Amino acid sequence: MGRFENVTALALPVAGAVVADLGCGPGRLTRALLGAEGGAPAVVHAVDVAATLDDDLLLDARVRAHIADLDRPLPLPDASLDAAASINVLEHLRDPAAHLDDVGRLLRPGGRFVLAHSDWDTALFSSVDDRLTRTLIDQWVAHSPGAGARVDGFAGRKLLRYADASGLDVESVHSWADPHRRFDVGSVAWKVATGVLAAASADTALSARAAGWVDELRHLADAGRFLFTVTDVAVVLRKDPTS
Protein backbone atom coordinates (compact mmCIF):
# COMPACT_ATOMS: atom_id res chain seq x y z
CA MET A 1 0.00 0.00 0.00
CA GLY A 2 1.04 3.61 -0.55
CA ARG A 3 1.10 6.38 2.05
CA PHE A 4 -2.50 7.44 1.38
CA GLU A 5 -3.86 3.93 1.82
CA ASN A 6 -1.71 3.43 4.93
CA VAL A 7 -3.05 6.60 6.52
CA THR A 8 -6.62 5.65 5.63
CA ALA A 9 -6.21 2.26 7.29
CA LEU A 10 -4.86 3.92 10.45
CA ALA A 11 -7.79 6.36 10.58
CA LEU A 12 -10.15 3.34 10.78
CA PRO A 13 -13.05 5.03 8.99
CA VAL A 14 -16.33 3.13 9.10
CA ALA A 15 -19.39 3.29 6.89
CA GLY A 16 -21.32 6.45 7.62
CA ALA A 17 -18.46 8.24 9.39
CA VAL A 18 -17.65 11.92 9.01
CA VAL A 19 -13.95 12.44 8.36
CA ALA A 20 -11.60 15.23 7.27
CA ASP A 21 -8.60 15.42 4.96
CA LEU A 22 -6.64 18.41 6.24
CA GLY A 23 -4.32 19.92 3.65
CA CYS A 24 -6.01 17.87 0.94
CA GLY A 25 -4.21 19.20 -2.17
CA PRO A 26 -5.66 17.50 -5.28
CA GLY A 27 -7.32 14.88 -3.07
CA ARG A 28 -5.28 11.67 -3.10
CA LEU A 29 -6.01 11.04 0.58
CA THR A 30 -9.65 12.04 0.03
CA ARG A 31 -9.89 9.33 -2.65
CA ALA A 32 -8.35 6.75 -0.35
CA LEU A 33 -10.76 7.65 2.45
CA LEU A 34 -13.73 7.34 0.10
CA GLY A 35 -12.54 3.87 -0.90
CA ALA A 36 -11.82 2.62 2.62
CA GLU A 37 -12.19 -1.15 2.95
CA GLY A 38 -14.09 -0.84 6.23
CA GLY A 39 -16.84 1.07 4.47
CA ALA A 40 -16.93 4.45 2.80
CA PRO A 41 -17.51 7.44 5.08
CA ALA A 42 -20.69 9.43 4.60
CA VAL A 43 -18.79 12.70 4.35
CA VAL A 44 -15.18 13.72 3.72
CA HIS A 45 -14.38 17.34 4.48
CA ALA A 46 -11.49 18.23 2.14
CA VAL A 47 -9.72 21.32 3.51
CA ASP A 48 -6.87 23.33 2.03
CA VAL A 49 -5.67 26.88 1.60
CA ALA A 50 -6.43 26.92 -2.15
CA ALA A 51 -8.89 25.33 -4.57
CA THR A 52 -6.74 22.42 -5.77
CA LEU A 53 -9.14 19.50 -5.37
CA ASP A 54 -9.64 17.41 -8.52
CA ASP A 55 -12.87 18.19 -10.40
CA ASP A 56 -14.40 14.73 -10.04
CA LEU A 57 -14.02 14.93 -6.26
CA LEU A 58 -15.66 18.35 -6.23
CA LEU A 59 -18.66 16.71 -7.95
CA ASP A 60 -18.80 13.78 -5.49
CA ALA A 61 -21.82 14.23 -3.21
CA ARG A 62 -19.85 12.83 -0.27
CA VAL A 63 -17.11 15.48 -0.47
CA ARG A 64 -17.35 18.89 1.17
CA ALA A 65 -14.59 21.19 -0.10
CA HIS A 66 -13.39 24.02 2.16
CA ILE A 67 -10.85 26.75 1.39
CA ALA A 68 -9.37 27.65 4.76
CA ASP A 69 -6.14 28.72 6.44
CA LEU A 70 -4.99 25.78 8.56
CA ASP A 71 -3.22 28.25 10.85
CA ARG A 72 -6.65 29.52 11.93
CA PRO A 73 -9.64 27.76 13.52
CA LEU A 74 -11.16 25.50 10.88
CA PRO A 75 -14.70 26.22 9.61
CA LEU A 76 -16.26 23.08 11.09
CA PRO A 77 -18.41 22.64 14.22
CA ASP A 78 -17.07 21.33 17.51
CA ALA A 79 -17.18 17.53 17.90
CA SER A 80 -18.26 17.04 14.29
CA LEU A 81 -15.62 14.54 13.10
CA ASP A 82 -15.20 10.82 13.73
CA ALA A 83 -11.69 10.95 12.27
CA ALA A 84 -9.22 13.32 10.62
CA ALA A 85 -5.91 12.90 8.86
CA SER A 86 -3.14 14.99 7.38
CA ILE A 87 -0.01 14.22 5.39
CA ASN A 88 2.97 16.60 5.15
CA VAL A 89 1.07 19.56 6.58
CA LEU A 90 2.77 20.48 9.87
CA GLU A 91 5.96 21.78 8.28
CA HIS A 92 3.95 24.53 6.57
CA LEU A 93 2.19 25.82 9.70
CA ARG A 94 3.23 28.79 11.82
CA ASP A 95 1.86 27.19 14.99
CA PRO A 96 1.48 23.38 14.77
CA ALA A 97 0.41 23.17 18.43
CA ALA A 98 -2.53 25.52 17.85
CA HIS A 99 -3.54 23.48 14.80
CA LEU A 100 -3.53 20.25 16.81
CA ASP A 101 -5.62 21.91 19.52
CA ASP A 102 -8.15 22.88 16.87
CA VAL A 103 -8.26 19.35 15.49
CA GLY A 104 -8.97 18.15 19.03
CA ARG A 105 -11.90 20.56 19.14
CA LEU A 106 -13.34 19.05 15.95
CA LEU A 107 -13.08 15.41 17.03
CA ARG A 108 -15.90 13.62 18.77
CA PRO A 109 -15.01 11.76 21.99
CA GLY A 110 -12.98 8.72 20.96
CA GLY A 111 -12.23 10.21 17.53
CA ARG A 112 -8.88 9.61 15.82
CA PHE A 113 -6.43 11.94 14.16
CA VAL A 114 -3.69 10.43 11.98
CA LEU A 115 -0.80 12.87 11.86
CA ALA A 116 1.60 11.78 9.11
CA HIS A 117 4.72 13.36 7.68
CA SER A 118 7.67 12.38 5.51
CA ASP A 119 11.07 12.75 7.12
CA TRP A 120 12.87 14.32 4.16
CA ASP A 121 16.38 13.76 5.54
CA THR A 122 15.83 10.05 4.86
CA ALA A 123 15.30 10.58 1.11
CA LEU A 124 17.05 7.84 -0.89
CA PHE A 125 17.95 8.18 -4.57
CA SER A 126 19.69 5.55 -6.63
CA SER A 127 22.77 7.29 -8.00
CA VAL A 128 26.25 6.62 -9.33
CA ASP A 129 27.66 9.28 -6.97
CA ASP A 130 26.49 8.57 -3.43
CA ARG A 131 28.68 11.28 -1.90
CA LEU A 132 27.16 13.97 -4.13
CA THR A 133 23.66 12.68 -3.40
CA ARG A 134 24.29 12.96 0.36
CA THR A 135 25.68 16.49 -0.08
CA LEU A 136 22.65 17.57 -2.08
CA ILE A 137 20.13 16.07 0.36
CA ASP A 138 21.92 17.73 3.30
CA GLN A 139 21.82 21.05 1.45
CA TRP A 140 18.13 20.63 0.71
CA VAL A 141 16.98 19.77 4.23
CA ALA A 142 18.97 22.72 5.63
CA HIS A 143 17.61 25.11 3.00
CA SER A 144 15.21 27.90 4.00
CA PRO A 145 13.09 28.71 0.93
CA GLY A 146 11.91 32.25 0.30
CA ALA A 147 8.43 33.72 -0.13
CA GLY A 148 7.39 32.63 3.35
CA ALA A 149 7.51 28.91 2.52
CA ARG A 150 8.22 26.52 5.37
CA VAL A 151 9.97 23.20 4.93
CA ASP A 152 11.30 21.03 7.75
CA GLY A 153 13.54 18.23 6.58
CA PHE A 154 13.23 16.52 9.97
CA ALA A 155 9.47 16.87 10.50
CA GLY A 156 8.71 13.15 10.56
CA ARG A 157 10.90 12.45 13.57
CA LYS A 158 9.34 15.39 15.46
CA LEU A 159 5.74 14.18 15.36
CA LEU A 160 5.80 12.73 18.87
CA ARG A 161 7.03 16.07 20.18
CA TYR A 162 4.00 17.77 18.65
CA ALA A 163 1.73 14.95 19.83
CA ASP A 164 2.86 15.30 23.44
CA ALA A 165 1.70 18.92 23.46
CA SER A 166 -1.62 18.24 21.72
CA GLY A 167 -3.86 17.14 24.56
CA LEU A 168 -4.73 14.02 22.55
CA ASP A 169 -3.63 10.52 23.56
CA VAL A 170 -0.96 8.73 21.50
CA GLU A 171 -2.51 5.44 20.43
CA SER A 172 0.25 4.13 18.14
CA VAL A 173 3.24 5.12 15.99
CA HIS A 174 4.03 3.77 12.53
CA SER A 175 6.56 4.22 9.75
CA TRP A 176 7.07 2.94 6.23
CA ALA A 177 9.04 3.68 3.07
CA ASP A 178 7.26 3.25 -0.25
CA PRO A 179 9.46 2.46 -3.29
CA HIS A 180 9.05 4.77 -6.30
CA ARG A 181 10.47 3.87 -9.71
CA ARG A 182 9.20 6.89 -11.68
CA PHE A 183 11.13 10.07 -12.41
CA ASP A 184 8.72 11.85 -14.75
CA VAL A 185 7.28 15.32 -14.18
CA GLY A 186 4.89 15.27 -11.24
CA SER A 187 6.28 12.11 -9.62
CA VAL A 188 7.31 12.25 -5.96
CA ALA A 189 10.97 11.80 -6.85
CA TRP A 190 10.80 14.58 -9.43
CA LYS A 191 9.22 16.97 -6.92
CA VAL A 192 11.96 16.26 -4.38
CA ALA A 193 14.67 16.63 -7.03
CA THR A 194 13.31 20.06 -8.04
CA GLY A 195 13.55 21.07 -4.39
CA VAL A 196 17.15 19.85 -4.35
CA LEU A 197 17.91 21.99 -7.43
CA ALA A 198 16.36 25.06 -5.79
CA ALA A 199 18.37 24.53 -2.61
CA ALA A 200 21.62 24.30 -4.59
CA SER A 201 20.92 27.33 -6.80
CA ALA A 202 22.81 29.85 -4.63
CA ASP A 203 26.08 27.93 -5.06
CA THR A 204 27.14 28.11 -8.73
CA ALA A 205 29.46 25.11 -8.59
CA LEU A 206 27.04 22.94 -6.63
CA SER A 207 24.13 24.03 -8.85
CA ALA A 208 25.94 22.79 -11.93
CA ARG A 209 26.69 19.46 -10.26
CA ALA A 210 23.04 19.20 -9.14
CA ALA A 211 21.83 19.71 -12.71
CA GLY A 212 24.10 16.89 -13.85
CA TRP A 213 22.81 14.75 -10.98
CA VAL A 214 19.22 15.23 -12.15
CA ASP A 215 20.20 14.27 -15.71
CA GLU A 216 21.80 11.14 -14.31
CA LEU A 217 18.56 10.27 -12.47
CA ARG A 218 16.66 10.59 -15.76
CA HIS A 219 19.07 8.21 -17.46
CA LEU A 220 18.74 5.69 -14.62
CA ALA A 221 14.95 5.90 -14.86
CA ASP A 222 15.05 5.41 -18.64
CA ALA A 223 17.18 2.31 -18.09
CA GLY A 224 14.81 0.94 -15.44
CA ARG A 225 17.43 1.26 -12.69
CA PHE A 226 15.97 4.17 -10.74
CA LEU A 227 14.70 3.99 -7.16
CA PHE A 228 13.49 6.68 -4.79
CA THR A 229 12.09 6.28 -1.31
CA VAL A 230 11.62 8.34 1.84
CA THR A 231 10.57 7.32 5.35
CA ASP A 232 7.04 8.35 6.33
CA VAL A 233 6.03 8.52 9.98
CA ALA A 234 2.46 8.48 11.29
CA VAL A 235 1.21 9.04 14.82
CA VAL A 236 -2.34 7.95 15.62
CA LEU A 237 -3.88 10.31 18.19
CA ARG A 238 -7.16 9.68 19.96
CA LYS A 239 -9.47 12.01 21.82
CA ASP A 240 -10.42 10.83 25.30
CA PRO A 241 -13.72 8.92 24.92
CA THR A 242 -14.97 10.47 28.16
CA SER A 243 -14.24 14.09 27.22
Score class of each variant (00 low, 15 high):
77 P>F: 00
77 P>W: 01
78 D>T: 09
80 S>W: 06
80 S>F: 07
82 D>F: 04
82 D>P: 00
85 A>D: 01
88 N>L: 10
89 V>P: 05
89 V>A: 11
91 E>M: 15
92 H>K: 14
92 H>P: 08
93 L>P: 10
96 P>I: 05
96 P>H: 06
97 A>P: 08
99 H>F: 15
103 V>H: 03
104 G>F: 06
113 F>I: 06
116 A>R: 00
118 S>P: 02
120 W>C: 03
122 T>N: 05
122 T>A: 01
123 A>N: 11
123 A>I: 13
127 S>W: 00
129 D>I: 08
131 R>W: 09
131 R>M: 09
133 T>N: 15
136 L>G: 05
141 V>S: 07
142 A>Q: 10
142 A>K: 02
144 S>F: 02
146 G>H: 00
147 A>N: 14
147 A>S: 13
148 G>K: 07
148 G>P: 11
154 F>M: 07
155 A>I: 14
155 A>D: 04
158 K>Q: 12
160 L>C: 15
160 L>F: 11
162 Y>G: 05
162 Y>I: 04
165 A>R: 15
166 S>A: 13
169 D>H: 12
169 D>L: 13
172 S>P: 04
175 S>P: 02
175 S>D: 13
177 A>C: 10
179 P>V: 05
180 H>C: 04
180 H>M: 07
181 R>D: 09
184 D>H: 13
185 V>K: 07
186 G>L: 11
186 G>S: 10
186 G>I: 15
187 S>T: 10
188 V>T: 15
188 V>I: 15
189 A>G: 02
191 K>F: 08
192 V>Q: 10
192 V>C: 11
196 V>W: 06
198 A>I: 01
199 A>K: 07
